[in-house]
Design a binder for these strands. Structure first.
Length: 490
RNA sequence: GGCCCCUUCGUCUAGUCAGGCCUAGGACACCAGGUUUUCAUCCUGGCGACAGGGGUUCAAAUCCCCUAGGGGUCACCA
């Protein structure tokens, strides 16, 4: 049976935007885009205390930031509104009534205490048995009478005998025996508040979702949902359970072993395309050879059937490498724009000053581009530029190296004189040539001057071409730094 | 513990469905060289895996069985 391809993600707005959600979204999105389907975003905010408006906004913003777009969702709407689960409760309850009437569900009047007692009883058992409600076999009319009398109850699904087998698009055949599945609660006692496993099916049905791609932690929920589809007499969607993203402890990625929130990586200055690309690589590969690819290539090649079965351990090293790969590929203008917030945050100058010196800033950024992996690496390399010239902090390693050069003071002073007098002039490339010739004329080696010079100019042991740096600094400032250096390194 | 899922270099993975093209390919990391005034980039090379055991077959990373290990899940959370 073919029906229109419709996929969705249904995040619950609790806390931060988890990378796992991002990847699930990525795969759903790519599948829809590749095969011409519709990508739906539904907010799973079933009246839980943990749901917050801020979190919902963060999810929307985060996914958009990643470059994902959805065809139907809470803000733009769509043909199956509303896209907030909490606003669909009436529908859910109606489905529940239907199931109650057909006998696929029943009212369970058990109290929480009774349930606790039952659970305690299970503790000791080797073979846990699935819960079957005490009132499972209560006469329907009798149950309705007690309900009408105001007695509180939960609505439970009546799990039939047998087992459920389904075809997972990633894992193949999966079978789970029904005696493992509780008569789970569809609607909570008293509150008329439906539970996740129930509403997810109602909503997917209502929204005509054809494929459900979600994390592996939902694998064991699937039979419950499948049983529900069949009780409702409706066709079930296809399912695929994505391998989990694991922390270095090999457990489900959590804060315990590192940052898990998209926001953490945005704040650290990971390029968006790098995050996108890296996430796509968690459980999937373009061709086994290519690690760096565009989102167009991704969409062109992605198929849920090619997703790996085994969990993927999140490798921060490779992620960092990927970040650098994208960052270094940016155009200087583009990079400068990305790095701007970090420059402002460093407090070197006001936004207005930065605007005025923009061409200079772009050159400055370009000079260190190949040394950066993250946008936030910028201050490390160019921070010295904004220090008082006479007291640029010296890195101990840089200073040590400079002091090894015995003629440092003499050469530094001589070079400053040559620069000031115009003996060294022209473009940075010409300065380099002239300086090298001058060093030779002094009977010295290149590092004899260059090492102390780099220390005096930047205070750092490494960095971009010296003359480029000198040019960026400007001759007057450079002279001040060199003369101060001659004294400080004496 | 029950059930379910998984298992190729330290890590991400290609190859497994259609057994031979695999003396198992790529990438990150690591190590060693080269380039550079330095750091970084870049280039070259190296290290390094089919979880174990049985079978089937002329032939198995690929098919079957068992064992071991890892993970997920066992809520009136989602």
């Amino acid at each position: 049976m073919t029906r229109p391809l419709r996929v969705r993600i249904a995040p619950s707005p609790t806390g931060t935007v988890h990378l796992g959600l991002c990847r699930t979204a990525l795969f759903n999105w790519a599948y829809a885009r590749r095969f011409g389907g519709t990508f739906v975003l539904r907010i799973e905010d079933t009246d839980h205390d943990r749901n917050t408006q801020a979190s919902q906004q963060a999810i929307l913003d985060g996914l958009r930031w990643l470059g994902l777009d959805w065809d139907e969702g809470p803000e733009q709407g769509g043909p199956y509104e509303p896209y907030q689960q909490s606003e669909r409760v009436e529908r859910h309850l109606a489905w529940a009534e239907k199931l109650l009437a057909s006998g696929h569900a029943y009212r369970d009047f058990s109290t929480p205490e009774q349930l606790d007692a039952w659970r305690a009883e299970q503790e000791g058992r080797k073979q846990r048995i699935a819960y079957r409600g005490a009132d499972r076999d209560l006469d329907l009319a009798e149950a309705e009478r007690r309900a009408a009398a105001g007695e509180e109850y939960a609505v439970r699904f009546r799990i039939p005998d047998g087992e459920t087998t389904f075809e997972d698009l990633i894992r193949g055949q999966v079978t789970i025996p029904h005696h493992e599945i509780d008569d789970w609660v569809m609607v909570r006692r008293g509150a008329a508040s439906p539970t996740y496993n129930f509403v997810v099916v109602c909503d997917d049905l209502d929204m005509h979702i054809s494929h459900v791609f979600r994390g592996e932690e939902h694998l064991v929920n699937t039979p419950k949902q499948l049983l529900l589809y069949s009780a409702l007499g409706e066709p079930a969607p296809e399912f695929a359970h994505l391998p989990l993203m694991l922390g270095t402890d090999r457990k489900k990625l959590s804060k315990r072993t590192g940052d898990t929130a998209l926001g953490d990586y945005q704040a650290k200055g990971y390029p968006r395309e790098a995050i996108f690309n890296f996430l796509a690589l968690q459980g999937w590969a373009l061709d086994g050879e290519t690690d760096v690819f565009s989102r167009e290539q991704f969409v062109e090649r992605f198929d849920i059937r090619d997703v790996a079965k085994a969990g993927a351990v999140f490798d921060p090293d490779k992620f960092l490498w990927m970040a650098g790969e994208y960052l270094r590929g940016e155009k200087p203008e583009e990079l400068a724009a990305h790095v701007k917030p970090f420059a402002l945050e460093a407090g070197w100058m006001s936004a207005q000053e930065l605007q005025e010196r923009w061409p200079w800033f772009v050159r400055l950024v370009a000079s260190v581009q190949e040394r950066l992996a993250l946008y936030s690496d910028l201050p490390h390399w160019v921070g010295h530029m904004f220090q008082p010239h006479a007291e640029v902090p010296y890195d101990p390693k840089a200073e040590k190296g400079a002091r090894k050069r015995e003629r440092r003071v003499e050469l530094l002073t001589g070079f400053a004189d040559a620069l000031e007098s115009g003996a060294i002039h022209g473009s940075p490339a010409q300065w380099a040539e002239q300086t090298k010739a001058w060093i030779e004329a002094q009977g010295a080696k290149i590092p004899d001057l260059f090492q102390p010079l780099r220390c005096a100019l930047t205070g750092m042991a490494g960095g971009p071409d010296l003359f480029e740096t000198l040019d960026l600094l400007g001759v007057p400032a450079a002279l001040e730094r060199i003369r101060a250096g001659a004294q400080r390194l004496a």
